[in-house]
């Protein structure tokens, strides 16, 4: 069911949530986290859809914060909060509240979000576009254990990557990094089989691809060799070559979901390496909500020899 609230407050929204839940007959649901999506009107639809699909694996309360821009100076001075509360079948397996802020309240969106967070449950903030310069210092970002940005959605990814390195705080993560998991697990599996030291390497990808840069940095950090960046026509990452004394280990994905793995002295074999949808990426992000230390290693591109804190 859907409840529309115009010029409202967080406490009225909370009441509407309870009312909605009562109406559909599920007074308590086992939601495991609160997901805050900060976006603009243009990207809201796709982001909400991805979050709802991901909520099949992680039932959650989704709070969508959309900043509206008033067109006239007079409207700009007025502050207003509109909300759309969706519960039941219209909100995946959880609850969705779409918050539209006008005027001054836009700068204080955290005051609206804070009372709507699920008790005790972890908070995740996702900026599908326009992530702040310093996610952990952002008022909404500060509420969250996990902050998801996307280097694919910025004008100049390599520049943005540098800024992420400077502002990194535990809990930061980026979908460009998430996209690499299948590549990384296949490379690790290939090395499980090859069992030889790597002496050189190259990542081949389209120009200015932030995931390729992260992959190269991760490989450099882990393997202690220089990784060449080779520009190809794409799409995205097309190949990784790791040189060994006996020949190259190559995962080659010229196009489509099928890649080829070649190991020295063995015939090539086929691998499934699909480009995943945003909802699959978000679902992976939500599986672990603690700091992703390996992302930090990849960002910095250097091996950290310090002992991991949790061991």
């Amino acid at each position: 069911m859907k409840i529309d609230l115009t010029d409202t407050t967080a406490s009225k929204i909370n009441k509407a949530l309870v009312k909605g839940r009562r109406a559909i007959g599920t007074p308590a649901v086992g939601m495991v986290l609160t997901m805050v999506i900060v976006t603009d009107e243009e990207n809201a639809y796709d982001s909400i859809k991805a979050a709802e699909e991901a909520s099949h694996e992680h039932p959650s309360r989704t709070l969508v914060v959309i900043k509206r821009h008033a067109r006239t100076p007079r409207e700009r001075t007025q502050s207003r909060l509109d909300a759309e509360v969706r519960v039941g079948s219209e909100a995946g397996t959880g609850e969705t509240v779409i918050l539209r802020t006008y005027g001054e309240v836009s700068d204080h969106a955290d005051s609206v979000v804070l009372p709507l967070l699920l008790p005790d449950a972890p908070v995740v903030v996702w900026w599908p576009v326009d992530a702040p310069q310093n996610p952990s210092k952002d008022p909404l970002g500060a509420l969250a254990q996990r902050r998801i940005t996307d280097l694919y959605a910025v004008e100049n990814p390599i520049e943005a990557l540098r800024s992420r390195i400077r502002s990194y705080a535990p809990g930061d993560t980026d979908l460009a990094w998430t996209r690499l998991t299948p590549w990384r697990s296949m490379l690790a599996a290939a090395l499980d089989q090859a069992r030889v030291p790597i002496v050189s390497g190259a990542v081949e990808a389209e120009a200015e691809n932030p995931a390729a840069e992260l992959l190269a940095r991760w490989l450099e950090a882990r393997l202690n060799v220089t990784i060449d960046r080779v520009v190809t026509a794409g799409p995205v990452v097309t190949a990784v070559r790791l040189g060994t004394a006996g020949g190259d280990i190559v995962i080659d994905r010229p196009e489509g979901p099928l890649a080829t793995l070649s190991l020295p002295g063995q015939p090539p074999r086929t691998l499934a390496l699909k480009v995943r949808t945003t909802s699959e990426l978000i679902a992976e992000e939500l599986r672990r909500l603690d700091a992703d230390e390996m992302y930090a290693v990849a960002l910095r591109g250097e091996g950290t020899k310090e002992t991991p804190s949790h061991v």
């Binding site: 998430t178 998991t181 990384r184 697990s185 490379l187 690790a188 599996a189 090395l191 499980d192 790597i198 490989l219 882990r222 393997l223 202690n224 992976e284 672990r288 992703d292 230390e293 390996m294 991991p308 949790h310 061991v311």
Partner: peptide, 15 residues
């Protein structure tokens, strides 16, 4: 010791 594996890297599945 596979240098690409690390206990901190919890995204990589148990393959």
């Amino acid at each position: 010791d596979n240098p690409l594996r690390d206990p901190r890297d919890r995204r990589l599945p148990r393959i």
